[in-house]
């Protein structure tokens, strides 16, 4: 049980980190960025490739992985979102364009084999791979019947620290106030001299950097990197998390992440591993029906 709770906190940290970026974009743009899980995958894939195929040091690879993810945030903004915003297209159009980008990213990784166009990005095709042991320090302790892996333990403080920093930035800095202003009323923000387009680009960079980092942590600590980790592990769960916490709310996403980790672990313990995923989505469904604004979200109001 102790091990399970530890796992819940570990996976919850990943969920939270991933969902914070998800919810940030939703909060500012009212758009679900469905390419976010592809960015998660991309971060992990780039880091792995740099270490294994290009012989870079692990730490440099992590930094570059985050950098590439952040860059992808700009691509999302400039290719998928900004042209549609200019045309005042309905939000559903942005859903489709981000799906399109996700498709490109995943297909590029999936097709990466030696000798193909994308060999520089990935050479293992659809196969899952593991970061080679020794690429990064991973001390393991056995305490009171618990197995403590350094790589998994490290995820927890890293995520918490980053989310605290993000919370501080959003709450107490001029940039954070600007982002919140854009989220609340883009017109008013423009009238105050805030360059709304630039703030949105910044939002996507932050969001994607966090998403990429979440992917790296997930891939490294769980030893599972493949083109499908984003789709299978966080895409839909990320939705569940931001709904549990309240769409657009950062503390909500953090809480939601840990809550979902806990719910899943409890479901495994109490009901067996088969129903794990189903229980999470039943919780999501119930939450939306009973309290659509989530734990932290603002009351949904209808404008007359």
């Amino acid at each position: 049980m102790g091990q399970q709770i530890l796992n819940a906190i570990f996976i919850g940290s990943i969920y939270a980190l991933f969902a914070v970026g998800y919810t940030l974009v939703f909060g500012v743009l009212d758009i679900l960025n469905l390419a976010h899980s592809a960015v998660f995958t991309l971060g992990a894939a780039v880091t792995y490739t740099l270490v294994v195929n290009h012989g870079q040091s692990f730490w440099l690879a992590c930094v570059l992985g985050i950098f590439v993810a952040a860059l992808m945030g700009l691509v999302i903004e400039y290719v998928c979102l900004r042209p549609l915003r200019r045309r005042r297209a309905p939000p559903i159009a942005a859903l489709i364009s981000t799906i399109g980008l996700a498709l490109i990213i995943i297909a590029a990784i999936e097709q990466g084999r030696p000798g193909t166009l994308f060999a520089w990005l990935w050479v293992d095709g659809a196969n899952p791979v593991t970061m080679p042991p020794g690429a990064f320090p991973n001390p393991t302790w056995h305490v009171a019947g618990l197995t403590l892996e350094g790589s998994k333990l490290a995820v927890i403080p890293i995520s918490l620290a980053l989310m605290l920093v993000l919370g501080y930035v959003m709450r107490s800095t001029q940039v954070g106030r600007g982002l919140r202003a854009v989220a609340e009323n883009p017109r008013a923000a423009r009238l105050m001299g805030i360059d709304v387009d630039r703030m949105i680009a910044l939002t996507l960079v932050i969001s994607s950097a966090l998403g990429g980092l979440a992917g790296i942590l997930f891939g490294v600590a769980l030893g599972d990197i493949s083109p499908y980790i984003g789709r299978d592990s966080v895409e839909v769960r990320g939705l569940a998390v931001i709904v549990l916490g309240g769409m657009g709310s950062i503390p909500g996403a953090v809480l939601g992440g840990y809550l979902l980790g806990l719910i899943e672990v409890l479901a495994v313990v109490l009901l067996g591993s088969n129903v794990r995923a189903g229980v999470a989505f039943a919780a999501l469904f119930l939450m939306l029906v009973l309290r659509p604004q989530g734990f932290f979200g603002a009351q949904l109001r209808e404008r007359i």
């Binding site: 839909v236 709904v243 989505f281 469904f285 029906v289």
Partner: peptide, 25 residues
């Protein structure tokens, strides 16, 4: 009574709960 993306997510919850929770079990 849910709107827009909230309805979308609720229905995703429904299909995932159905396929992962019910059909697979």
């Amino acid at each position: 009574r849910l709107r827009g993306v909230f309805l979308a997510i609720a229905t995703i919850g429904f299909i995932e709960a159905l396929s992962l929770g019910v059909i697979l079990n």
